[in-house]
Structure formats: C-alpha cells, structure tokens
Design a protein around this nucleic acid. Sequence first.
DNA 1: CTGACGATTCACT
DNA 2: GTGAATCGTCAGC
Length: 190
Amino acid sequence: MTIARDLLGKILVTEFDGQRTSGRIVETEAYNGVTDRASHAWSGRRTKRTEVIFARGGTAYVYLIYGIHHLFNVVTNVKDTPHAVLIRALEPLEGIPVMLRRTGKPSPDHSLTRGPGNLSRALGLLTSHTGTTLLGDTIFIADDGWRPRRSDVVAGPRIGVDYAGEDALLPYRFFIKGSPYVSGRKKINQ
DNA sequence: CTGACGATTCACT
DNA sequence: GTGAATCGTCAGC
C-alpha cells in the first residue's frame, strides 16, 4: 500500500537487446492479497499463473488480458504474501523513438504510456517477463531523487474492477495530480 | 477436453 | 456510449 504511493515519481526502466526505454511512474494501483476480491490472489487462489505473486518482492508479474494487452505489476511483499502493484501510467523519458516503433504511433503524445496496456507495449513488456527479478539489468526501478509534492499525490478507487464488489471502492489507486499521462475512465476519475 | 471470461483499448454510432 | 477483438487460464465435466 505504502509502496504503491512510494513508486510514484520513480522511474521504470526496461533494456532489451540494448534498447533502453524508461518512464516516470505517475499512476499505480495496489492489489492487497488474499483479502482483496479484485486481486488475482484473492482468497488464497494459488495457481500456475498467480504463483509469481506469492514470490518475494521485487519480482515482475506480467499478465495477458483480453488476449491483447499486457499488464505490468511489481510484486511487493515477502514470500507467500501475495501483494502486487499495477503500474498504470508513465511519463516517457528515454527511448521514445523505440516506444513509437513498438506502438506504431507516428509521434509521441499522452497516449503513448497512458494506461497499463499501452505502457507495457511501449516498454516491450511481455508475459514471458513474468518472474523476472527487478534487481537485474533488463527490467528495474530507478530513482533520480525526484518526488511528487505530497499535495499532488491523490488516492482514489481503482479502475476496471467493478466486479470486486465493495473492494472496488477501496482507495488503492494512486496518481500524480495534473499529469497529462494519468489514465482513467470517465466514471470515477480524478 | 470444453466453455466462459477478464486488473483493456480502439473504432465507430 | 457501445461493442468487438482475441487467447491464456481456470473450473467443470
């Protein structure tokens, strides 16, 4: 939970085949383990797919949704405690031309890394990266000391988890107010 | 083995 | 605002 907030302002970096891309994290969502109906690990569901969420913190969990989009998560807790943080939006920093090529966009705009599906595509993240440690040199979190002002960090309900009942209302989504890269639907936004 | 569906996005009405 | 795309995962038979 605290970790989701602390990740705001940090830099997510991927480096595949010498192509480095990075972006500052401006939006995250926390998934709070077995008590969170919106989490894949809810109620102790532990399967081949979700196994990685039970790993120790600092592990990547990349999940394919709707057969189309990849969603990138960071496993945040100790072994056997399935907490994860979904990275929902970045502000592009390095490797923007590479991102453009990956996404097929002609020019950089706010949609390049806005939304978990777009972001993963821009950084070249695939489900095959699930289980990769973030302590290595292909996918990792960097910190240049930049921090959002405390008054600019906003918490709100998560997106796309309406099926989770009451848990869908929990303020587990954190984002930096005013960033043009923050995603969000029209309903419960900002 | 079979069927149902999702932590989304994009194009179209 | 609505609906389709598209496939790995999981539950059930």
